[in-house]
Write a protein that binds this DNA or RNA. Structure first.
Lengths: 224, 224
DNA sequence: TTTAAAATACGCCATTTGTCGTATTGTAGG
DNA sequence: CCTACAATACGACAAATGGCGTATTTTAAA
């Protein structure tokens, strides 16, 4: 029987994951926590009885202490416990951070119960790593990028990774150059309104909500 | 209906994979080849009719031309075709080579039919990447091992080049992380007014007049 | 000790940005 | 032919930003 702990700040998510675990055979819920800090507290309690969870499902974005920081600390203190990061977005930076902090897997929350249970079993039984396919793709891209710092077709990556359209890439380029809506519009011979619409769409695709964050992604990927 | 091609030098393996594909719904066998070179030949034939396979299951160790070399060439010629490497061993070097050559996945041959079918579907439907858990583990280890070259004193560069003060560097750091005035103020325990003053000074020193431009400089110089 | 720099804090105001909507047109694919 | 998507365009409103002041306190250097 695999003992599973769940850490998430949203009660709904905790409930959801809890249900999925109770339905799966071979595993039982050990405890719940609502952020990294309270998780570490509960682990201390466990230390008293020596009754630790085997696997921890850890959300990333949480108040007080986020999941990555928590794993970083917890992996030091309890190296035998495995951590699976559960998150909504496939944020490259966070995947990387999570892996470095010692997480054994990185799954998207949308993953089905079967997948979740399978991942937990695999991690415990075979010491394998669990990754959602989308995450695996990012990981592979990161790997291949690191070895080939120069990418021949830059704009192509933007399209491939985030499904940006040609026009959206034009707009993003303008943003990276520090232009405002009006200036981008002038350059592309469209109204600033159109530019704003495109930018809104870009934000959705990149999972960001500000110019700075969008430009950061573009620059870090060396798109332009 | 997903068209699948199979490339393997062992007749037994071809037969095995062929059977597994014919049993899966939603996909059909397109052609077989026994090494990378003959695969490329058959692809040329396909070009005549425009009837390419959607996904190619490619063995790695093959005589005449190995799978990685074949993928390398084929990905250039037929970028829309996806390649899944199928192999017996989880050889680190080869995983790496395969990823670089443009493979969309790396599966162990022992993988069950369901897994295989699932991987093919995922690759075609979502553009995701398929990896056997063991392979994923290797990939993650490669990722976490490769520590990016850290600059010993990052902030020092900022001070030297632009005479930014310690506090200004703190503020800029917040800006790079996408925080707004209020959030930066909270983090540093000062009022948002103070933050604005500092930002104004930063702009003067960096010779910019917007957040995006300031963040761009910070990122390009790899200050944080 | 005087001086300069750094860090702190506030107000005002125009501009920019982010987020809602809605809506029309063209075009490629089923 | 119909549908989905891309690209275009507009309006309204709240929030954030940039630029202009001024001003006090602390610290370090001359």
């Amino acid at each position: 029987m695999i003992k599973v702990a769940v850490v998430d700040d949203k009660a709904i998510n905790r409930q959801s994951v809890r249900e999925r675990i109770s339905m799966a055979s071979g595993m039982q819920l050990h405890f719940l926590a609502d952020n990294g800090s309270s998780f570490l507290e509960k682990m201390k309690t466990c230390a008293a009885s020596g009754d630790f969870p085997d696997v921890v499902l850890m959300d990333i974005d949480m108040p007080v202490m986020n999941g990555i920081a928590a794993v970083n600390i917890a992996k030091e203190l309890y190296p035998k416990v495995d951590f699976l990061m559960l998150t909504v977005f496939d944020d490259d930076e966070k995947i990387f951070e999570a892996i470095k902090s010692g997480a054994s897997g990185y799954l998207l929350k949308e993953e089905s119960m079967e997948k979740l249970a399978e991942a937990i079993l695999q991690v415990k039984e075979f010491g394998a790593v669990a990754m959602s396919p989308i995450v695996a793709r990012k990981a592979m891209m990161m790997l291949s990028r690191n070895e080939q710092p120069q990418n021949p077709d830059l704009a192509k990556n933007a399209r491939d990774e985030y499904n940006l359209t040609d026009r959206e890439i034009d707009i993003l380029k303008g943003m990276v150059e520090g232009l405002d809506y009006r200036q981008i519009g002038e350059r592309l011979f469209v109204s600033p309104h159109t530019v704003r619409t495109h930018i809104g769409n870009i934000y959705k695709k990149l999972h960001v909500c500000s110019k700075v964050d969008a430009v950061k992604i573009a620059i870090k990927r060396q798109w332009f």
